[in-house]
Design a protein around this nucleic acid. Sequence first.
DNA 1: TCCCTATTCATGA
DNA 2: TGGAATCATGAATAGGGA
Length: 903
Amino acid sequence: MENHHQGAAHSSSGADLLSRIALNDNKAGMEGLDRDKINKIILETSKGSKFYENELKKEQQVNQRIEKMMEQKARTTKEQLKQAQAEVDKLMCELERSRELGRVIVHVDMDAFYAAVEMRDCPELKDKPMAVGSMSMLSTSNYHARRFGVRAAMPGFIAKKLCPNLVIVPTNFDKYRAVSAQVREIFSEYDPHFMPMSLDEAYLDITEHLEQRQHWPETMRTYYICDAKTENNADRSESERDELSPVLFEDSPSSSPSLSGADRKAEVFGMSAEEAVREMRFRIQQKTSLTASAGIAPNMMLAKVCSDKNKPNGQYRIPPERQVVMEFMKDLPVRKVSGVGKVTEKMLAALGIVNCDQLGQQMALLSLLFSVSSWHNFLHISLGLGSTCIERDSERKSMSTERTFGEMNDAEEQYSLCRDLCHDLAQDLQREGLKGKTVTLKLKNVKFEVKTRAFTLQYAVCTEEEIFAAAKDLLKFEIDCVSPQPLKLRLMGVRMSGFISAEDKKPLQRSIMGFLQKGGSDSGSFTQCAGSVLKAEEDSDAAGFLKPQSTEMKEPSVSEQKPKSGGPQQQSFFQRAQLKRLQQQQEQMSIVAATDTTNYSADSAAATQTDLPTTNNQSDTTSAKSLSNTDSGTDATSYMNKPAVLKPSFKISTQVLQFLTCPVCNAEMKDVNLTAFNNHIDECLKGSAVDNEPIHLDAPKEQEELNSKPPASSSESKTRKSSSHNPSCNEEKPSTSISVPLAETDDDSDFKTPFFSHRTKINGKRSVISKKKMSSSEASQTTHKLEAVTEMSSDSKGSSLTCPVCSQPQSTDDLALFNRHVDMCLNQEVLLEFRESHPPVGDSDEPALKNVRGQLGDQGRVSKVREKSKRQGSSLPPSKKIKVLSTKQTIDKFFKSSARQKV
DNA sequence: TCCCTATTCATGA
DNA sequence: TGGAATCATGAATAGGGA
């Protein structure tokens, strides 16, 4: 067959590649070419390139797949085949019964669209081989160029080898979009719900149109060639139009002869499907001076194949009769069917299947060798079945942006690019009003190897800062993985998916409820939360989700409430990677995170995910020790840093130390072990906590070493502790403290699941570390600056405020103070209820308590309750009160659930 | 053990 | 010298929970 023919002319490796990079003459206008000559040129031009090597690799992988498939085929018994055949027959009968021939589906495809537009606008190009694109890549080519083997998706430099006279015109998408809009206007008259596939392609269901058409008088089916009023091309003279249109594809198999007669002024179209489609194409041509091809059939699959049949400037119809459909399919090469690409084609060819008739005959075998969805699809194809319902208004599932560039090795450049991509993506998302939860980073290295890395946040986001907060961590992780070698990239992309539905869009902020959900403590939320808090803290104008929402406070949306299993969903990537590292480095483990000299720390997400120290932590610790001297007393946490704000070049030495914040009393504890910390929280929960003095118990030895190694380090930590008492520090920059809750056992908690509560250096300023039990007003000084800033900027200032929880008027006008007070009130209320329903039972290490402790750690969530209440006035609306009460139920539920887990 | 979900990669338009 | 961008989907895989 084709492959065999190609392979015979070349070396084995070249033959291997032919199905991938050699000429694909599947396209219209590519018939009867000197394929061997063209392939030789393509191979010679490609050979030795990184691209070629990668294609070779991929081809070998496909070959392995085929080998495995053939082995499986060899193992197939007659009995299995018999059984499979029975199943196939059964399904076939069902499909036959449900075969629908009643719809009239049309697939319209503009001929060589971009090239045709350029030729129309620059008539000198008409007789020349030309393509649209660049030396790097061509989007499409005209039919002159196709004679040389120049096709879409071919690099311009290779096309030039094939056709030295090729004229390459740069793309002008604005122009194509404008033309496309004109064409779509016409489509909509035949099917208002037509489905555009791209700028130059669409499916229409003209069934209803045809019904109406039967009652139309001839005048409604008459179009005048020169009637500028009817057709929107008044700007062109008649002679121009006559000259332009037919010449583009003069050798078209079915160029409408009726149109070329110079004396013909009016065209009357009939009532049949063919006539309606001919009319549509006529109108397209009149309006745009471009030609289109069309396929008419009872379903989409057939219509698509048909539109290619008489390309260019032609149409083909399969009538709605089973027998005709089957006859049409019989000799149709499988590759012509949409969805069958080069790999599937090759795999089927290995089984001796080239056309759809053979496909049908081998269904039993295919059902044993391919997945269910694959062989079901094959069965549909072999029966000439396809979708009869044009899917309308299908929801977008992802949005992405990516860029290819010359080799890029510099990390700072890469971060900068990453940010640019996030910026673009954020703009696109906001344009469509979308917010998504999963950020995927796509990387292609200089060897053309593609990697994707994803991270799912707890909340849907859409701002540059928020997206970048996740993307940069993913990028850092990849950079660190190859360190000290540079990451050599040629493409980077950022994708957003996991869009929330329209309903879910309203509550952008999750309440404390969400954090109290079992399993809802996934660290993604903390990354997210931290990133957002910090981002907004610095950028008060940012329209992040922490900005006051005008929507009503309500329960978390279904999607957001849905408990993440806390497993691979949130952790798989980082955890898996981290665990691998962990195995190599267990002996070096300590709870303490280390120093990050770049402030771009994948550790952030990594630590958030698993709380495992990483290689980077370790190495960074060493590398940054000296730097930390110059930045004494500054705490930072990798996941609370603000990469979204800091430029890659903005290097800061930040030392991350283990600070744990009691979520109940807000006491800061440094260098505590987890058991002690947990005990402390238990005491707090039981109401018997002592004065919130920091607990300072034995830190792991490694940690001590880490802390003491740099001359300044140990003293620094003391400085830091003492500085926490310093009120001036408090004034300097309030900070957010976030505890990452993770279930743990005391035995191995040292490296498995430590609590983390990190402090971040913000703008080089010291974070606040509160040590004493704070009054509400004192405590408020440590609340999120973000909210204060946000509210100040968006709301009134000056008037006295009343706490919506305790209803006490607050003497302060400082929103930060006020916020803090409300935070405390809310926490108190929840905790009191919790205490009431769960009196102390002796075992202070009850897992549920531990989890609750952790769950309560993020005060940012609670703050949103306050934010809203403040905007609405001084008292909580009923819904909010209910909400607070229901928090207790959530805790109960959580408690029970956790207890069950333990069992 | 089975089911569900997230992630990664491949395929195809 | 140089080999795209965007979107959807399926398979394989892995881990958590019931």
